[in-house]
Deep mutational scan, measured.
Amino acid sequence: NMTTNERRVIVPADPTLWTQEHVRQWLEWAIKEYSLMEIDTSFFQNMDGKELCKMNKEDFLRATTLYNTEVLLSHLSYLRES
């Protein structure tokens, strides 16, 4: 059983600085953390943090459901504000 610390993704605090690998790690973490289903992860495959942060609700909806979109966008905006 993993502790919270072991599951925590170590990525730069500012999502606009993320590499493609960071985006992948964040997505994998969010899927596990929030038990998200039905995400087309290939949609995010060649995307870095700058591109991710430019995405709006409609962009996310092409890859996943409305619920997942709201979870991911709210977590992303939380990270950008902190």
Rank of each mutant, 00 (worst) to 15 (best):
K57D: 05
E38S: 10
L36Y: 01
E51F: 05
M47G: 01
T65S: 12
E33V: 03
H22T: 05
N5W: 07
L72S: 00
Y78F: 08
E28V: 11
A63I: 05
L17Y: 09
T3S: 14
I39F: 09
K32R: 10
W29R: 12
F43G: 06
V11E: 13
Q25E: 04
E51R: 09
W26C: 02
K32Q: 10
T64G: 08
I10Y: 06
A30D: 02
T65A: 03
M55C: 12
L73N: 02
T41L: 14
N56A: 09
T3R: 07
L17E: 14
C53H: 04
G49R: 01
Q20F: 02
R24S: 14
S35I: 02
S42M: 09
T3N: 10
N56Q: 11
V11K: 15
Q20G: 10
L76P: 02
V71L: 09
Q20T: 11
S42F: 06
T41D: 14
N46E: 10
E38F: 04
L36P: 02
L73Y: 05
E21Y: 14
D59A: 11
D40Q: 05
F44I: 05
F44E: 00
T69E: 02
M55W: 11
Y67R: 14
E51Y: 02
R62E: 12
N5D: 12
M37C: 05
F44G: 02
L73H: 07
F44T: 03
M55Q: 07
D59L: 05
T4E: 08
L61P: 00
M37L: 12
E58I: 04
L76H: 01
F44Y: 03
M37Q: 05
E58T: 10
N1I: 15
K50R: 09
T64W: 03
E21W: 05
M47E: 00
K32F: 04
A13T: 14
I10Q: 13
C53R: 02
L27M: 10
L61M: 08
G49S: 00
P12D: 14
W18G: 03
S35W: 03
K57C: 06
V9F: 12
L52C: 02
V11D: 12
P12Q: 07
T19L: 05
P12F: 06
T16E: 07
Y67G: 13
W26R: 01
R62N: 11
M55T: 06
A13K: 14
E21S: 09
N1L: 08
D48R: 05
L52W: 00
I31T: 11
S77T: 13
V23L: 07
L52F: 10
L52S: 00
M2N: 07
F44L: 06
T3P: 05
N68E: 11
L27S: 03
G49V: 01
F60S: 01
Q45I: 01
E38K: 09
F60G: 00
Y34D: 03
L76G: 05
R7Q: 09
D40P: 07
E51A: 12
L52G: 00
R62A: 07
T65F: 00
L73E: 04
E21V: 09
V23Q: 00
M55I: 04
M37K: 12
L17T: 12
S74R: 13
L61K: 04
V23W: 01
Q25M: 07
M2E: 04
T41R: 10
N56V: 10
E38G: 08
N5R: 11
T3H: 04
W18H: 03
Y67A: 10
I31V: 12
L66D: 15
E70I: 02
D40Y: 02
D14C: 07
H22M: 13
T3V: 06
H22R: 05
A13Q: 15
P15R: 00
L61Q: 12
Y67F: 06
N5M: 08
V9L: 11
C53S: 06
T16M: 11
V11Y: 13
R24E: 04
T19K: 08
Q45C: 10
V11T: 14
L17D: 15
M2R: 14
A30P: 00
Y34Q: 04
I10T: 14
E58P: 13
L27I: 08
E21G: 07
T41Q: 10
R8G: 03
E58L: 08
N46P: 06
E33S: 06
L52V: 06
D48H: 04
N68F: 00
P12H: 09
L72W: 00
A63H: 07
T69S: 11
E51S: 11
Q25F: 09
T4Q: 09
E21K: 05
R8I: 03
F43E: 06
V23F: 02
W18D: 01
K50E: 14
A30L: 07
R8L: 04
S35Q: 09
V23K: 01
D14H: 01
V11R: 15
W18N: 01
T64R: 01
M37R: 10
E28I: 15
I31K: 10
L52Q: 00
E28S: 08
S82Y: 07
E58C: 09
G49W: 01
D59V: 06
E33D: 08
N5S: 07
K32N: 12
N5I: 01
T4S: 14
I39V: 13
K50L: 08
K57F: 03
R24I: 07
R80S: 15
F60R: 00
E70F: 03
I39K: 00
W26Y: 15
W18Q: 01
N1R: 09
Y67H: 14
R62F: 04
K32D: 12
D40T: 05
E51P: 01
L76Q: 01
V9W: 12
Q45R: 14
S35H: 08
F43H: 07
L66F: 02
F43R: 09
R8V: 05
W26P: 00
A63Y: 14
L76S: 02
V71Y: 05
Q20L: 05
L73T: 11
Q20N: 15
D40G: 02
D40F: 05
A13S: 14
M55Y: 05
T41C: 13
T16G: 08
A13W: 13
S35A: 10
D14K: 02
S74V: 02
E58G: 13
R8M: 09
C53L: 15
W26H: 00
M55K: 13
K54N: 13
T69L: 02
L72T: 01
E28N: 04
Q25N: 14
Y34P: 00
A13H: 07
Y34L: 06
D14S: 06
T65W: 00
W26L: 02
P15W: 00
L76Y: 01
C53Y: 04
S35P: 06
D14Y: 13
F60E: 00
N5A: 12
L36S: 02
D59Q: 09
E70K: 07
K54E: 14
F43S: 11
V71Q: 11
D14M: 03
H22C: 03
E21H: 15
L61T: 11
W29H: 11
K50D: 09
R62Y: 03
E33T: 05
L66K: 11
E33K: 11
L27Y: 01
Q45N: 07
V23T: 06
E6I: 09
P15Q: 02
L36H: 03
A13Y: 10
T4N: 14
E70V: 04
N56Y: 02
R8E: 13
A30E: 10
T3Y: 06
I10S: 15
L17R: 11
C53F: 13
N46H: 15
E28G: 07
R24Y: 05
A30R: 06
H22Q: 13
T19G: 06
R8A: 07
R62P: 06
S74Y: 15
Q20W: 08
P15T: 03
R62W: 04
E51T: 13
N1T: 14
R62S: 13
V23C: 01
E6Y: 05
K50V: 07
E70P: 01
L72C: 04
T16N: 06
D40E: 11
V11P: 15
T69C: 06
K50I: 09
